[in-house]
Design a protein around this nucleic acid. Structure first.
Lengths: 221, 221
DNA sequence: TCAAAAGTGTTGTCGCTACACCCATGT
DNA sequence: ACATGGGTGTAGCGACAACACTTTTGA
């Protein structure tokens, strides 16, 4: 273990609103507080493998969208000694996985990004930076799809984007732009058990999705 | 000194083409090779202060545009031991400063981004990532202005953007868009000693520049 | 007088925004 | 039958790209 180098993860999910996964710490410092899941980097582990390992422990997820937020290195950001941390953000489909609190966590919980509690150390800084990155990234890659379940309605997608960007879109215009991208596959299925007209379900077209990412596509909605 | 944590800087400048500042190493490992200027972080120094100090030593520059590129942490990226490095990129006005090779450098040189030599460790990776960041950033902030001298012509500015984005623009359209931004102040001066019609000189309007940055302006040329 | 870059407007096309009503389903 | 969200088309406007010639200056 490298005791002066850690990672911290901002894990985004969506189930009607944008949420982040927090754990309640069961070790000092910060015992009892909600905080970002993180941990120290192992000596024989590539840096970027560290958050992958941590997320595997915590959620069982091994295949996910993961990016660096940045390095945080104020001298006294960690109270016990000088530790630099690398922030990461991840996108996961909440529905796909069950959360398993790791050894240093008593509890793991999805919390709306609008209701984030007080956080220890500089975690608030890391969290805010991650949200900023997410908002930048959402315009460059169609990352929204990493957050939705396999089958979703166009309204789900619209809600997701509105939730991330904290804005609203015109329904018709949103659908028109989306249609032009050819990104959605009509599953010819409908919602069930909804007390209104059932919406059509879609999945996204993996190939076109990959192509768009490579192209440096601007996903402007 | 924290001997497992370093920083490396990709310093961009412009004098007709986009260039980067490299040093020739006079210490092992990598003795004699051109490499990115960098160094280890001090124990009592905030992380982001480290590249500032390094650039001050190297160029005398203390006020500059500096951003993180990312953290690089493959297990064996550095041959002697496990070292994680944080990459930074900086924008400087070549004309404003004289380069002073630091204690661990024999020579410092501006090299065109199209002629970068073989680099030690993972410096090529860091360099490429920095160029990518620069290209992203150039569309979001009018950072071009950090690279030009105080007085410049519109053609200089256009060359800069073409050089960064590796493309060409229509002269009339470029000027029209620029005019709409109200970003330039006409200095009512002209070039001298050019063997063609002398171009008008401009500086940029600091206040509007700051306002645009805050607004999350998209600098789309 | 020639070479080299500066500077300047118009037009057609495309994309964006704004906007209102009927449809299907469960209660 | 009513409440709730699903789903659809058009018209006007603004933004963008394409395009060529005259001007100024030094050699």
């Amino acid at each position: 273990m490298i005791d002066n180098l850690s990672i911290d993860c901002v894990i985004f999910g969506f189930d009607g609103e944008l949420k982040t996964l927090f754990i309640r710490r069961n070790t000092e410092p910060g015992l009892g507080m909600m905080s970002l899941p993180g941990g120290f980097v192992e000596l024989d582990e590539p840096l970027d493998a560290s958050p992958v390992r941590r997320l595997k422990e915590l959620t069982g997820i091994s295949n996910l969208f993961l990016r660096q937020v940045g390095a945080f290195g104020e001298v006294d950001r960690y109270p016990l000694r000088r530790v630099i941390t690398i922030g990461y953000y991840a996108l996961v489909k909440i529905s796909d996985y069950t959360i398993q609190p790791g050894v240093d966590a008593q509890e793991a919980r999805w919390i709306s990004v609008k209701e984030v509690p007080e956080l220890p150390f500089d975690h608030r800084l890391i969290f805010d930076a991650a949200v900023d990155k997410l908002r930048e990234m959402v315009r460059i890659e169609p990352i929204g799809f990493n957050l939705l379940p396999e089958k979703f309605t166009i309204t789900d997608l619209q809600n997701l984007y509105e939730s991330i960007l904290d804005t609203t879109f015109d329904k018709r215009n949103f659908r028109k732009k989306l249609a032009k991208m050819n990104l959605l596959v009509d599953l010819k299925e409908k919602q069930t058990n909804v007390s209104h007209r059932a919406a059509n379900l879609y999945k996204f077209d993996e190939k076109i999705y990959q192509k768009l990412i490579k192209k440096g596509f601007v996903f402007d909605l």
